[in-house]
Design a protein around this nucleic acid. Structure first.
Lengths: 188, 188
DNA sequence: TTGCTCCTCACGTCACGTGAGGTGGC
DNA sequence: TTGCTCCTCACGTCACGTGAGGTGGC
């Protein structure tokens, strides 16, 4: 994976030099050592474990730009964007294998708009799935609420009452079925 | 786990007998064989695999009422309620171990209102977590939408454009950063 | 030198998936 | 007898968790 530097870079630098802001460290030209992160720092910043970051490397999803003399992994600051990107895709339900495939498709597609089109399609599919998932969770939310409400009655029941009698409890209206979340306990 | 039959059963039966509906098979008294389900049927009805149902049995979450002479598991119809209950708890993020613990607490608590109180507390905690999860997914939804919108511009880009040039694409406003979901591709 | 961070194996865990080889029941 | 369903091992998978034993770097 070779990265071409955008051509604007020089003019961008001169604009910054002309401003009154303190000059940021030159980190793209190689004169000063580039600011890097050790794996523990990257882990902390991304809320991942070191083990997870190692795994992403094994799977080809993340690479340190170099190693220290002692073998320590040194990451570019950009890696944080990559790791957060992985996290988001995982939250949407992509597996690491899915993500691996997406990256490969991306790298092997010569034409930029074609690659972007593919990405767009994937995101649209996921948007639909995310909406489904939200709908499912809202149903669960309603169910939780009504189960909690149903259970509000129980503290007024006699403490001597045995659990097996709950199937015919006289405190709840006779036509009021126990909600599934409660009924599951006595099922069987 | 012994189940006491509710006392209303007989009167319920006689009400049914008095109606004009065809008499349903007597399935609680033991005169006729009780309607049971084989594991495959239960799997189909609950959208689980046979393997999963076996696992629930190993973990003490589900038990067939009997076995056929040939060793086939035979489940009560009630088992479907139990399996759906397990599914719902899993959707909320409970592990099988969690569910196992809940059932044990339930079975070992002598007092019914106390058991219900515990269940109520657990459900309240899960309600909060479910709401958090919904909030997270809605953020993702918004992010997906804006990423998709951002990518709408790309089909108008020259097909000869190389991917590495996307970091400085002139079709997107210069101050418009690529959304994280897109930026993750070129990060590193 | 001390203490914290990092390294590479390598086995464990969770909720199943996926055969292998054999049998039940209509 | 055929075909579908079921049985019990038992190993595989996914995304890490969790040591074990050793070293880097301020």
């Amino acid at each position: 994976m070779t990265i071409q530097l955008p051509i604007l870079r020089d003019s961008a630098l001169s604009v910054m030099a002309a401003s009154c802001e303190p000059r940021p460290p030159a980190n793209s030209v190689g004169m000063k050592p580039v600011k890097t992160l050790k794996v523990g720092e990257l882990a902390r910043l991304s809320s991942k474990t070191v083990r997870a970051l190692h795994l992403y490397e094994e799977r080809g999803l993340l690479d340190p730009i170099e190693r220290s003399k002692g073998g320590f992994r040194l990451y570019a600051e950009d890696s944080l964007v990559r790791v957060r990107w992985i996290s988001k895709l995982q939250e949407m339900g992509f597996s690491l294998t899915d993500i691996q495939r997406m990256l490969q498709q991306w790298e092997h597609s010569g034409s930029a708009p074609a690659a972007m089109l593919r990405v767009g399609e994937l995101l649209k599919t996921k948007l639909a799935e995310t909406r489904d998932q939200i709908a499912r969770l809202r149903l669960l939310e309603v169910e939780l609420e009504s189960s909690i409400e149903y259970l509000e009655t129980c503290p007024h029941c006699s403490p001597q009452q045995v659990l097996t009698a709950c199937t015919a409890c006289e405190l709840h209206a006779q036509n009021e079925m126990a909600p599934d979340l409660v009924a599951g306990f006595h099922a069987q």
